[in-house]
Nucleic acid binder design. Structure first.
Lengths: 219, 219, 219, 219
DNA sequence: GATGAATGAGTCTTCATTCAT
DNA sequence: TATGAATGAAGACTCATTCAT
């Protein structure tokens, strides 16, 4: 594992636990096993470190989202696949997703603009699917904006309570959420077999792990 | 308006915008129009200030929740009323609710324990209603825990995006969320006329406001 | 007991325990049962409070010292009586004497000058007696200054370790110290019956006490 | 001279002049020629700085005391050598000794316990010698505790008034004090030639000096 | 006579960052 | 590549003091 990854993991763990502002650069260094000055060499500073983490997290959500939309044009299937993708990503990388979700306000200038833009891109995927589902009559939605926001909050929440060593497997969690999402938008329940090819879920290099399993990605 | 209220409003505004850890005591004082030392006279310190705000916020959620459960024993009605109450409280006091939702980890010791206990109390209201609805067959829930968490996340989210001066009135927002909640748990759609007496929504004294309208409470 | 006395006692107790600089005006007020602002009315401020205490303490030492020197012109008797007087004063008012001994450097300007002058006055009593004892041949002193300083340190020390409820009565303590002093200056041992009329030992109003016994003085 | 030494000297000078509580960390930094934050890098904080100084001072007193007791078993000689050692240490490092003597109460927790234990160790050396001298009949002491305390106060006092550039050399000062001590305990006068090998007197690195002379020690 | 309110200056300490090595 | 040293700015908090009531 590279030094930057080591640093990102340490940072994600601490940022998730205490928040960006309450975490010291020295503490990150200590957890990563590096001098805090070394950290500047690899990560470029505290805010750059956070921005890198969030780019990673949102980048993966975007990639998985695009993969989700690809195979089918059916809004119900697309929504189900979006939920599959997001839930799995959040479940497999909860701390990175927590940080990505909560610390946007800590960014400034270009970093802030870039991350907000990525987030907006991601949310617009849901928006467009919901819109098309309404137009085709597959969805029964009273208020598009409210539905989208409720749906997103619900899915984002996974990162904050799901524990991989708990009762539910990721696959089970996905099934539960697809069901909830279908109900929320008033669509028919989309089954797993309808959903087409499985979506790759990436185990992010920024996510702190005991041991080192799963599909690893350096992005 | 008392000095403590002035301080709490300033603090809530800043905590919501930048987070507790990223907000300086001097800055709160500046916004409140007081010397930072005076703030200690009224609020007792930064953490005490936060704890006071969160006590206010959770206290009101608990109160409104109890009022919601009272008139009917029907789980569907109780759930609808819980959602009515929470959505309205969040919509009317969004910043206080944001802070209450996000800054628990900044508390320590007894403050932390107390607030966590209040939050658990509140969440158990939803849990109990969902359980009873499942037993009576009014709800069709695949996974109780997942449903509860999804529901709560969805409702908590309101504080983060609802704007009182926007397209939707609070009443409309409530209707949308009752519909979403009913769908989520697989119950019949509970109409407003079924819901019984209106639930008082308190405008918290800790909530920053332009002007000063609404039912005000010092609790 | 007057309010000023109450304040002085509280202050002496705290100054002795933690030192002047480490003691807060509010804490003194709390111990005295008064608001810290009220303290300004009676004592005029923190430094004035200390100066008052030290004036009291040194004033009493000076008074007792003069009383000691009066009845006899014999240097040996005079020295014995000076020791009797000082030891008793320190034993009966240990905390006031500790503060008087140690906190001179906390004073400024006129207060400082005045207290230093009083202390010098007091020490010069010993100096003069030792000088005369040398001239008359009653004392065998190798180095006058060293002897005086050693003698004074020795006597001042009483305030720091003597406990009235301990093994030794004040009278016994006096006897021990007279013996030590006589040895130190190489004089014959002066017996109690030689010492003439007893010296009044004042129980200072600035000394914290449980209950309220002894000859009390307001000076 | 190392930075830590620089800091300790500055601190000792200021602590001796104004007291620990009345000395600011910034002021120490200014005198030491360092930013106050740098001070934390080397000394770890204000209390740690004091504790380090006192460890140095008491450590040296203990070492010299042990060296004093070694060569002879004769209580009179041992006492004389203890006095030689202490007087020289105090005369050569007066400010460090002042601080060590007076600021114990500023320490807390483990630091306090450790320093008090060292001081008790040191005082017990005197106690044991006095005890043995009484048993062997070499000393004529009416009250052991009083004699020990008087002796110690007398010797401690040296740090507060001896000036190396004054009338007396350290050796002369030692002779005067050995004489006083012998008188105090009623022993024969122990001469220098009886005292055996000279005791090393260490010039502490924490002691502020103009120029930089003498046997220097980093301990 | 007595006090709660108020504050500017001060406290110790930690911060993110830079830089010479 | 890696780090100990160094610092100005800022952190939360306490201070002695004044004053209107």
């Amino acid at each position: 594992m590279s030094n930057l990854e080591q640093i990102q993991r340490a940072a994600v763990g601490l940022f998730a636990e205490r928040g960006f502002a309450a975490t010291g650069i020295r503490e990150i260094g200590r957890v990563a096993g590096l001098n805090s000055a070394t950290l500047y060499h690899y990560a470029g500073g505290k805010e750059e470190l956070l921005a890198g983490i969030m780019r990673t997290g949102l980048g993966e959500l975007l990639r998985a989202g695009r993969e989700a939309l690809e195979p089918s044009a059916d809004p119900a299937v697309q929504l189900a696949r979006l939920v599959l993708a997001q839930v799995a990503t959040e479940a497999v990388n909860p701390l990175t997703c927590q940080v990505t979700d909560r610390e946007v306000r800590a960014l400034t200038g270009d970093n802030h603009a870039e991350i907000v833009a990525m987030r907006d891109d991601y949310e617009s995927m849901f928006q467009r699917v919901l819109e098309r589902g309404m137009r085709t009559g597959e969805f029964q939605i009273t208020d598009l904006r409210v539905a989208r926001l409720a749906l997103l909050e619900m899915c984002n929440g996974v990162a904050f309570w799901y524990r991989p060593d708990g009762r539910l497997s990721v696959a089970q969690l996905q099934d539960r959420f697809v069901e909830l999402a279908c109900r929320l938008v008033g669509s028919r329940l989309v089954g797993r077999q309808e959903c087409g090819p499985e979506i790759v879920t990436v185990s992010l290099s920024s996510e702190p792990r005991d041991g080192n399993v799963g599909v690893e990605a350096s992005a």
